[in-house]
Design a protein around this nucleic acid. Sequence first.
DNA 1: AAATATGATATATATAAGATATAACACATA
DNA 2: TATGTGTTATATCTTATATATATCATATTT
Lengths: 122, 122
Amino acid sequence: MLIEIDFNSPQAIYIQLRNQIVMGIAQEQLRDGDSLPSVRSLASTLGVNMHTVNKAYAMLRSEGYLILDRRKGAVIQVEIENKDAEIEKINHNLRMVVAQAICKGISKEDMHAVIDDMYEHF
Amino acid sequence: MLIEIDFNSPQAIYIQLRNQIVMGIAQEQLRDGDSLPSVRSLASTLGVNMHTVNKAYAMLRSEGYLILDRRKGAVIQVEIENKDAEIEKINHNLRMVVAQAICKGISKEDMHAVIDDMYEHF
DNA sequence: AAATATGATATATATAAGATATAACACATA
DNA sequence: TATGTGTTATATCTTATATATATCATATTT
């Protein structure tokens, strides 16, 4: 899976990294059991420091997207604790986006269409 | 409208401020034509520096939520440039949230329900 | 006319976050 | 034994955030 870092972005590198891996999982480019490159090798590939990658991996682990094992390295393993709990998290993340949508006169039907389209072609 | 700052939050104060004002507009606690407190008075009320408020106001202006006038101060005025353009922005902001939802096994129907609920009781 | 309040701008400083550079550790594997 | 994991620690540099003052042009109020 291709990962690209924009060094001019205001977004922190470890966040860019985390986001691209989450999107990779959503696109099924990354599946449960797949291994990610080691912290050091990915850092080397991207031209980035080891700790930056480590920070992204640690974040992904804490969010339940992968497990870190000394034997196998970083392995994708999406943990779904409880549907209601997951929906609650989504709810929180969605709040600002919906606020913006309401302000800008975008109807919930418009939002449905955007969501459907995204689920279709992610 | 009540604005509260969490000084222990990892989120920058000017972002908290910006977000709460956008939510205020979405909730119709703030409507077009309403004035916000001046930069200095809001800063004083919140126990925050003038520049921090100024940064939030400047951001809101650049995002088309208010206009800044020396006569009237900061006045809510939501500018909707073009529906497709606004949807495109929402699309961008929504992408990471939907990625997370897909990863965590949340269906688009679940998302619709969350959206509808939010539009209902914002 | 004078005083006051507005947003806007400039400069300086302090703190926190992000990123890097090395180094070492425990553990597993080849 | 040597190598490669993730993990942790320390130090340094840069950038972002927040604050403290101060000034400016302009509009309003007294």
